[in-house]
Design a binder for these strands. Structure first.
Lengths: 234, 234
DNA sequence: TATTGCAGGATTGTTGAACAATCGGCAAGG
DNA sequence: CCTTGCCGATTGTTCAACAATCCTGCAATA
């Protein structure tokens, strides 16, 4: 087996190439990324129309490729398309909040219970997100607190060890950002939950996955009610 | 209120219109549906290349709109696109099986535990899927048994009451069909699990959601091992 | 023989322009 | 005031093209 080690390198390189190929650029994806970021950042507010011609010109890209990008974001529920009426930034309502939380209430505790079989590194990611939140709070950076909170919930789902689930969670968290932008985006919304995150992380590290899952369930239920309260005012 | 009944008709019609508008036609979606079905049905086997020009001509549609349709299916992981190399029907490997089952192991038991708060109609859907499977088994229709099994698992996720989760489960089940086509598609694969479905349904109807979830967890783990065994032969 | 270099053809990524279908608004008319 | 019909604007879709990239085969070379 003179080529054994060499073949290993070969296949590694090939895998890398394929990964870059399937993940990476193609202007449509890049444009989708730009728009995604503009929405996540709050620069494109809910309800704003996105006329294809002007937007394509602004992005320096053809209308067709812009169309492909818009298609991606529509699939991600960040934008909504109505036939012959154009695409607009999604304006979530109370039902959307209920639906997203119904998904999270199934997904996150389910993933947390699977944490029993997760490698230690994934549990460490949980702890890292908790500490990131603590640091952000002490620094008084409200935006970073929100970010850390999202990282925590992403880490919870990552315990399940499924790329597909991680992608789904990314979509749900993107919608959560829309919710926050739709309501007044109260800067202190996330802070009360930092303690709960820490408690859940403690339980997880102690191997008490079931307790952690139940804790998370009540946590999410509370957050949903709070959000729905905020939406009732709209 | 002379127009009361009329306004009812109006709003009904309007709701219908909006539903069709956001869900239905636009040739790209229709084409995506056709291709999706061809793959699900097994007429387009794993690994077959889909050249844009010929395929567009065959479908009687422009290359651009075909491109949009392909984009959808790529997002659904039914097809895989490599830059400048074209799209092919996804050929799942053992890692894909592991990933999909990691997702299902978090999703399905998690949704089942949420069944506690589900309306009775959703539980009835569970029972309906079980009976559909029994009938198909007695009729000796192996394909229908597989279909009923998918309906059961879809009904489990539907307990959570989230459209977004239902859509995600549709994707996972579509990938499962790819798995079955990739291996020899043993016609009797699903039959042993009908009893487990019935047991889970019994527990659910008895309100023993936690027991049902645990039962489903071992169930899914077994099925995963069996599938992985089939894939090891490839 | 096995590998390298190179041309040629084929396919994809992207663009630009066009046309029919449809939507939104505005004026005419009851 | 409400309806009707028309006009401009935007979308859905197609067509034709071009550059970039990939694959194939063949010749040249060691």
């Amino acid at each position: 087996m003179s080529t054994g080690a060499f073949d290993d390198v070969l296949s590694t390189l090939d895998a890398e190439r394929r990964a870059r190929r399937t993940v990476m650029s193609t202007t449509a994806d890049r444009v989708a990324g730009q728009l995604r970021e503009q929405v996540a950042e709050g620069h494109l507010r809910s309800g704003t129309k996105l006329p294809e011609e002007r937007l394509a010109a602004a992005l320096g890209v053809s209308r067709n490729t812009l169309r492909e990008a818009l298609g991606q974001l529509v699939a991600e529920r960040i934008l909504v398309r109505e036939a012959h009426r154009g695409v607009v930034v999604s304006t979530p309502d109370a039902d959307d909040v209920r639906d997203v939380y119904a998904a999270r209430l199934a997904l996150e505790p389910g993933a947390l219970r699977q944490g029993e079989h997760a490698p230690a590194a994934r549990v460490a990611a949980l702890r890292a997100a908790v500490e990131e939140g603590q640091a952000a709070l002490e620094a008084g950076d409200h935006e970073a607190v929100g970010g850390a909170n999202q990282h925590f919930h992403h880490a919870v789902v990552a315990l399940a060890g499924s790329d597909r689930l991680d992608a789904q969670m990314d979509l749900l968290l993107a919608e959560m950002r829309l919710f926050f932008h739709a309501m007044g985006d109260p800067r202190t919304f996330h802070e009360p939950y930092l303690a709960a995150n820490a408690a859940i992380c403690d339980l997880a590290e102690a191997g008490r996955w079931s307790d952690a899952a139940e804790h998370l369930t009540t946590y999410l239920t509370d957050a949903r009610e709070q959000l729905l309260g905020g939406f009732a005012l709209t």
